[in-house]
Nucleic acid binder design. Sequence first.
DNA 1: ATCAATGCAAATAATTTGCAAAAAG
DNA 2: CTTTTTGCAAATTATTTGCATTGAT
Lengths: 157, 157
Amino acid sequence: MPVAETQSAKQKFMEFLAQKGLRITSQRQAIIDTVFGTDKHFTADQLLEWSRARDRSVSRATVYRTLPLLTESGLVREMDFGKDYKFYDPNYAEHPNHSHIICQDCEKIVEFESEKISMLEDEISHELGFSVATQKLQITGTCEELKKLGACKNRSC
Amino acid sequence: MPVAETQSAKQKFMEFLAQKGLRITSQRQAIIDTVFGTDKHFTADQLLEWSRARDRSVSRATVYRTLPLLTESGLVREMDFGKDYKFYDPNYAEHPNHSHIICQDCEKIVEFESEKISMLEDEISHELGFSVATQKLQITGTCEELKKLGACKNRSC
DNA sequence: ATCAATGCAAATAATTTGCAAAAAG
DNA sequence: CTTTTTGCAAATTATTTGCATTGAT
């Protein structure tokens, strides 16, 4: 996670807040630093825990109130991987069109980008009378290791 | 929704139940008839309502207990369209690789299939060391009508 | 008979919200 | 000062579950 890009996403979000007349409190700062200081997917619960490591005064309510702001800004996206809780992906600032491939065995998630798929999406959407705003592609699969060894070792997937 | 195919999905699910040693009760029958008698997406709540129209004795608990069986069979897929409740799509029996495009304005959902995208997904997944099990693609967009008229009339999207 | 399946009502758990106190500008 | 933001605890809501009873085979 290059520092320059990370800071830029953070900057963008702080501008987003400013534009809405919203304040940058110490709690929000801790949450923002956490979100844009990682490239990992996280849950609301994890975000609370990690933010609290920076600022003990962050509450669950504030996390849940900040999450919609993050998604509204477009810099973070809510993801459903079939669990009871939602995941949040902070990598949309740098890679707005990336997709996910999820290992059925170890549940590890790999991100990838495909220019070709994006173009096809544009093309098909246009044929259907739409212009694309966002795309979300999730592939579920098994890794080679799983097929060969009967279980994947959490290495390649 | 061609009757032959619809019945075949229903048959498949009843075989699935039989194979697991599960019984076909009147309540399950009503739910199954409902699910495979439509090509519309539905919520748990809608499924309850529609099933009750066929058999008044269907309870919410039975609907919630049957839904996992339907998804486990692969004939119905759970979908997250960003709402608080889940949607279920009964069209995976006939079109296992279809995708969705969602109008941001009227929220109507159009389904489409793309052989080209499927092939790219296979190709990329293989490069990453995976073989594809399932795929889920959601495109969010605005329809032409929306852009021209400022609002879409719920006709083309 | 036997064991799975049901309805009911209570439980669960993630997320949301009202409110009085605290902090930002 | 004024307005937003906070933490807390209570509320909300989709979904799940325990249990005594019913029904399929």
